[in-house]
């Protein structure tokens, strides 16, 4: 039986006296017929690929349309100047999310998590946390299991595709995964992890997918930063003991339902919202 609910994961962990990430690891091993070590090694490789992608960014790349590129560099310079309001940690998270999303738009090598369009969110919080608090790779891999478990439940109950559920399904899902992973790294228990995911996803419900000219560039790159910062905020709230009035699985269901009701214009067709503004349309025409 595949994983269908966050509550079930927590209950199973409680019964077996294990934890959220271990339940996900067991499921992965069962499905693939691999050992825990092999499963963890594969996930660690994904983390290394994320770090490589982050390190390879030079800021000189531009997307095929010319709309995207170089903003990660601007953000780094400003954060390093010490003048930014959000402070060093959140500044770093923002910058890394923009860098990764720009790399994706510029045909760089990235890790889809859960999708290519939202590839900046999870690495931004994990690498920033790693550089700041050095939790060790074992702990980081465990947090990746947490993120994968949350993503799996969202995928099973709702969707992680912009074409079926709008941006809430991509950036929203990535943000929920990142929030859960961060809460885990901060020492949160299974319930806190799920609360962080729920708080993050709730904040992005209803977000449409309206990319200019149908390309994974505008507004996708900047929304990666929003998803990543939102994850930090949600993890902090959950760690403070704040809970979501609507239970986490029900929040995910609400996202799925909202996505189903979303007009096709707002589901990655490039025909509504920002894509349909006079400027959006003008850009689309110049690219044809």
């Amino acid at each position: 039986m595949d994983i269908q609910s966050l509550q079930e994961i927590c209950e199973q962990a409680g019964q077996e006296n294990s934890s959220f990430w271990e339940i996900i690891q067991q499921s992965d091993c069962r499905e693939n017929g691999t050992s825990c070590e092999e499963s963890a090694a594969a996930l660690l490789e994904m983390y290394h690929s994320m770090k490589d992608a982050d390190a390879q960014y030079v800021g000189a790349g531009r997307s095929a349309s010319g709309m995207v590129g170089g903003d990660g560099q601007k953000l780094r310079a400003y954060v390093e100047s010490g003048k930014n309001l959000a402070g060093p940690f959140v500044g770093k998270v923002m910058e890394k999310a923009v860098r990764m999303a720009e790399s994706n738009a510029c045909m760089g090598r990235i890790v889809a998590a859960p999708t290519a369009g939202s590839c900046g969110v999870l690495p931004a919080v994990l690498i920033a946390y790693d550089e700041t608090y050095a939790p060790g790779e074992e702990k980081l891999v465990e947090s990746l299991y947490v993120a994968a478990g949350i993503g799996q439940v969202i995928s099973a109950r709702a969707s992680v595709s912009g074409a079926s559920g709008g941006c809430q399904a991509e950036i929203g899902s990535a943000s929920a995964m990142a929030a859960g992973a961060l809460a885990y790294l901060c020492g949160g228990d299974d319930k806190t992890v799920c609360q962080a995911a729920a708080i993050a996803l709730k904040a992005l419900l209803g977000l449409t997918c309206d990319p200019v000219a149908g390309l994974v560039e505008v507004p996708c790159v900047k929304r990666n930063a929003v998803g990543a910062v939102n994850a930090v905020e949600a993890a902090d709230m959950a760690m403070a003991g704040i809970t979501s009035v609507i239970p986490p699985d029900e929040v995910i269901d609400a996202m799925g339902e909202t996505g189903q009701d979303m007009n096709a214009k707002y589901r990655e067709t490039g025909e509504g919202g920002l894509a349909a503004t006079p400027t959006g349309r003008a850009i689309t025409r110049t690219l044809k």
Binding site: I24, D28, E31, A42, L43, A113, T115, Q152, V216, E217
Partner: peptide, 21 residues
């Protein structure tokens, strides 16, 4: 579940359908 279905694949961007596919 397969964790690499959610965290992964490693790919050249920008789009899983239009580039990786």
């Amino acid at each position: 579940m397969h964790v690499l279905d959610i965290i992964g694949p490693v790919m050249v961007g920008p789009s899983s359908s239009h580039t990786a596919g």
